[in-house]
């Protein structure tokens, strides 16, 4: 079955000041897919996410989201940040946080009943009904992450972008969150940055490797060569029950990058 593309990243280059982070990045994401963005730290995963969100603009190349610019499409993108970014002591309830996903809908800050219904509905979808009045800071890490997913759902987004949704949660909670995302993926396109190939490869439909440049492969065609391209060669990866041996990390760190010279001067 052919799905239409919802995110098209074409030949994008982006540099912070003089340091080029992305070079000729190309990614096409189709409707209904669940894409895991993987790659080493500093390889440009978060930058790619910010470009798709329209928080940054590419130096070269173009990005189309839902057939338009990222800025215009931003109303249809639900962004899920990491829960750890937030002030622990901030006095907000779960309901406050979820409703913030609909903050732009009314000129004055009052929410209508449709907003409140959408928030209740979103909380039900992440299995947190009954949590409305709880202080956000009372919740566990996994619960807070689910509240933030509910916030993105409350925006009635067509695409969900998640930045390391399972960072700082234990493996049980991680499985719960991925199960939830798989469930949500039946209706919504999901793009998530993740460092954990292990869990990602069992849920995702596609893997996007971002290491200054990028490539995207369907999960069934995902091979160790792709992992090598994304990371340093020889990194241990567990996937679909199969397991590769761990190679001495000090050796893998000293081997040259296979993808060669990807950082070069701007312009």
């Amino acid at each position: 079955m052919e799905y239409k593309p919802v995110i098209e990243v074409s030949d994008v280059c982006f540099a912070y000041d003089s340091q080029e982070v992305l070079h000729n990045a190309n990614i096409i994401i189709h409707e209904g897919s669940m894409v895991a963005v993987v790659g080493p730290n500093g390889g440009g995963k978060s930058t790619l996410l910010k470009l798709i969100l329209g928080l940054l603009t590419p130096n070269l190349g173009s990005i189309r989201v839902l057939g338009t610019t990222p800025q215009q499409a931003s109303a249809h993108i639900g962004y899920v940040p990491q829960y750890l970014q937030f002030d622990e002591a901030f006095p907000v309830t779960v309901n406050d946080v979820v409703l913030m996903g609909r903050i732009e809908r009314n000129f004055f800050g009052f929410y209508r009943s449709e907003d409140k219904n959408a928030a209740r509905n979103a909380l039900e979808r992440v299995h947190l009904d009954g949590y409305q009045k709880r202080p956000f800071s009372d919740l566990s890490g996994g619960e807070r992450q689910r509240v933030l997913i509910a916030q993105a759902l409350a925006t009635e987004a067509k695409i969900l972008l998640l930045d390391e949704p399972t960072a700082n949660v234990d493996s049980v909670v991680e499985k719960q969150i991925f199960a939830l995302l798989e469930e949500l993926n039946k209706e919504i396109t999901i793009v998530m940055v993740s460092h954990n190939l292990n869990v990602v490869t069992s849920s995702a439909s596609h893997i996007a490797c971002v290491n200054h440049t990028s490539s995207i492969v369907p999960i069934d065609k995902f091979t160790e060569a792709d992992i090598d391209r994304a990371f340093h060669p020889g990194l241990a990866v567990l996937r679909h029950g199969s397991c590769c041996p761990v190679i001495d990390p000090s050796r893998s760190m000293s081997t040259p990058h296979k993808c060669g010279d990807t950082i070069h001067k701007k312009g």
Binding site: I77, Y79, F90, D96, L99, I103
Partner: peptide, 18 residues
């Protein structure tokens, strides 16, 4: 609610076009 949002999640406020 606007003040609450820009205080708690300034990035979200920007993304939602506030």
């Amino acid at each position: 609610n606007k003040f609450l949002t820009i205080s708690f999640q300034p990035q979200l406020a920007r993304l939602r076009g506030l």
